[in-house]
Design a binder for these strands. Structure first.
Lengths: 204, 204, 204, 204
DNA sequence: GATGAATGAGCATTCATTCAT
DNA sequence: GATGAATGAATGCTCATTCAT
């Protein structure tokens, strides 16, 4: 009962512990975003979250475990948002899909740096279930399917679409205003490519 | 420690030195690509290039200087290739431009990761000229200008275009074949966006 | 690396830490005295104090911080002793002052080398107050004032007096006996110079 | 004929070599003075003297050998100057002696830092013949003898006198003017102590 | 369970010195 | 004999991680 498989974050049982964990995740999010996975230090995470370094290690026995926890947290949000978009009831138009993707990106932009820095640091996510990357490509494929077009090229297109979304994530964010010039162009890129895909050949 | 200008790589004066420098650059290229600027260590570069750590530092007095050298090496290639594309004589069509960009990406793909990892590490380059990033955005702007369209949005579009190119750089490279499915789609993205930009409003 | 104020020695919060700090200071005293600030190495300090290098850096995040701690420790003793001498109640005679200075030197002789090597390394001390050197010169001036004499030359004389005291500090110490021949002569030097200063011109 | 005892500077046979050596010694003087024996580097000495590092090592096979050469050079000058003072023909008055000592110090002041930094770095000088220190103490004793006073205390007094001279060497030098305020006071210290010694008891 | 001290491998960098050309 | 490249031990310092209290 005492030797859990290492590599998993310990789930805290009491309220106090859950608050701790939340504070830690928040601090880590900020630090990984400001610096990078490698440049951020566990000591700093502890400091910023008001946790003793020893306590930090109780919940996250490894820096990598902490990173994975973050990846899961934001990855799940991202996946859920994508699922909601794909399954939206009145069938999606291309314009809706482009706007929806951009909206997702904009909502998660605050935490985007974490995701980007973690995706690119090669940290594995849910070893068994496949990577975040795989899951995201799956969703992109789903989106393309809903919009129609020749299914033959969907696999490559999903990859490209994912890269486009990542590129938009990486875009410097100009002000929180409703629609910056950059956003307009970003949405254009998405729309153009989705149109292109939907147009590619009639279903079946 | 103080009288030697520490900002520039020392040029080797003998053949032996020139070989060593070449070996170092090669090893560093590989390592910065595999890991990242921050994760790669000078000791590893030395080891991988068969150089004593002291010799490494003779030519590259700082990790950053080494990175800058790499940036210049690949950055210059990239910029030259872009310049050739922009200034090609029979004025470019949108399709030519897209194909040209993709071609450039394909040719430099081997060294792509280095460039990517160094661009994003924000290392300054050519003291006066600003970052590689800045230079690249300038080229993208130049390309958009040649293709026409409302010049008002060129700044934002140049940024977007750079991100698209970066995304394509980052694409997993499938075989060295002439035109993989991924390449076709990548070219489509570029063409669509360049068309969109060129169409945006009549010149003048 | 960035959020922690790196300018001050971290105060240990537990007994174990306080012991360690004491051991470190002792070892550093010895080493800085035997060699010099520059020649002594942190690794050696760690070794000699039975501390892991990491622990040493926990409390003294920089070699300079360690030096400053030493400087404060011994500098404060020295300054307090000088203050007690200057403010002694029955106004000082020249002979008393000379004897007093010598006595101070003799008491602090064990740690003299550290002070000497640190004074001359120009390490800043107590951010606002300037160097130990400055503080000492101030005290020497105070002593000269109490003994009378033309105040016009006190600044230069304070500097000279400090150098005399330093010279006596540097004297090879012959046995712990009450008054060695060297001490007699050293006291003579001080007395002669203080007399000379006091005689220089009537007050006002 | 090829394996000379290590530790001695190789005497150059040709003019070219003698110039080299002179340049090296000059550069080393400046550097040791500006920084310190430990902080100055052989590479810097080579650079500053326009010598290749390999050539520097031909003449001075060790950093310490270089230091010893400097020590000898300045030590000899100092000793000669002292000898001239001691043996000056119309027998010396105390005032003359004080003025003479100060004059010597002032003349060698440019190079004082080297001597000070080398004396205090514990580098041995002429292993067989004794240290510079010993030689200097001898001269101080000689000077005291010429001025009269009880010879019993001359040994201790010579040591003290040497320390006084060293202290004056270390004095911050204010302008090259003929007699700065500091110099006046420094001469006073010397005169007072020499008088005290000469007065101590009638000869014999 | 929380706290913070302890640990030590590792990192970027320096520099005296040697050696091949 | 001159040159400069090569060498590697050593330095100041960092940081993930463990352990005693």
């Amino acid at each position: 009962m005492s030797s859990l498989p290492p590599g998993v974050a310990l789930a805290p049982k009491r309220q106090r512990g859950r608050d701790r964990v939340a504070a830690i995740l928040e601090a880590a999010t900020a630090l990984f975003a400001e610096k990078s996975y490698e440049a951020a230090t566990m000591t700093e995470v502890a400091l910023r979250s008001g946790t003793a370094i020893g306590s930090l290690y109780r919940f996250f026995p490894t820096k990598e475990v902490l990173a994975v926890a973050l990846l899961e947290r934001y990855g799940e949000r991202l996946l859920h948002a994508l699922d909601r978009l794909i399954d939206r009831d009145p069938p999606l138009s291309v314009a809706d899909a482009a706007a929806g993707l951009l909206e997702i990106v904009r909502c998660l932009r605050t935490e985007r740096s974490v995701v980007l820095s973690l995706i690119d640091s090669g940290i594995a996510w849910q070893a068994g279930t496949g990577t975040l990357r795989t899951a995201l490509i799956g969703r992109m494929g789903g989106l393309l399917s809903r919009l129609g077009g020749s299914p033959g090229a969907h696999d490559e297109r999903a990859v490209i679409l994912l890269h486009l979304v990542k590129a938009i994530f990486a875009l410097p964010q100009d002000g929180p205003g409703p629609q910056s010039a950059g956003d307009v162009e970003a949405e254009a890129v998405l729309r153009l490519y989705l149109e292109h895909s939907a147009r590619s050949a009639p279903h079946g």
